[in-house]
Amino acid sequence: MKILVCIKQVPDMESRFKPNGSGVWFEETDLAFRMNEYDEYAVEQAVRLKEQLGDAHEVTVLSIGPDRVVEAIKKALAMGCDRGVHVQDPAASLKDPWQIAAIIAAYARDKGFDLIFTGMQSQDRGSAQVGVTVAEDLGLPCTTTLVGFAYDNGTITAKRELEGGVKGVVRVKTPALVTCQLGLNVPRYPTLPNIMKAKKKEIEAIPVGDLLREEARTATASFHPPAKKGGGIVLEGEVGALVDQLVGILKDKTAVLR
């Protein structure tokens, strides 16, 4: 079985984001980057599947971006993926989800992957489009927001998270694509010996120009922090008057009192 995991490197979400010069993305200088959380679930699940199936089965991890994304690829290799693919693109953040999906699909098209894992969405852009669009491009069946995964003899049984805590169970035959949600698993820490051994695993570098034929279909018009909310209201005065004022505000401005 050939498995592909697609991962993105995103800024640490504790970072302070500010718009970059062009105002359509954030300033990346000085940010610390790490593997997108949802992609960690994807890598973990892919590695568990390989462990279930045995060493003859191969997990490839792919990431698109500037040189720094090699660190995320190496983490996935240290977690147990077999080989890496770095699609070199210093301007990945300017591409829309359509293009990112097209790049992945162009890479994967003739490789005969039986199963593709992606995260449900990225923590920074959050479009949740790349996984499903790759599936569409490749003509693969696809199931999303996985919180449970089992594989047996060519059939995936996927537990999905739906709105309001409702769960759904989907069965799909490989080849297929799945997107992974929080709760699917607890990703392992890469062990230190495995981090060092991952140095010896192959990382194929492919210039993005070799894979991308598509124009962007959406354009980000602006990236900005939300307008600052006004400060809270401080009421002052006698208790009786305060209560009247408060009840008035709750009636007018909220749904608490009707």
């Binding site: 062990t191 230190l192 010996p193 495995n194 981090i195 060092m196 051994k197």
Partner: peptide, 18 residues
Amino acid sequence: ELGFMGLNIREDLGGAAA
């Protein structure tokens, strides 16, 4: 188990050789 007890130790001895 994560390899923090032998950071600077040879791999064949169970270290991380880091």
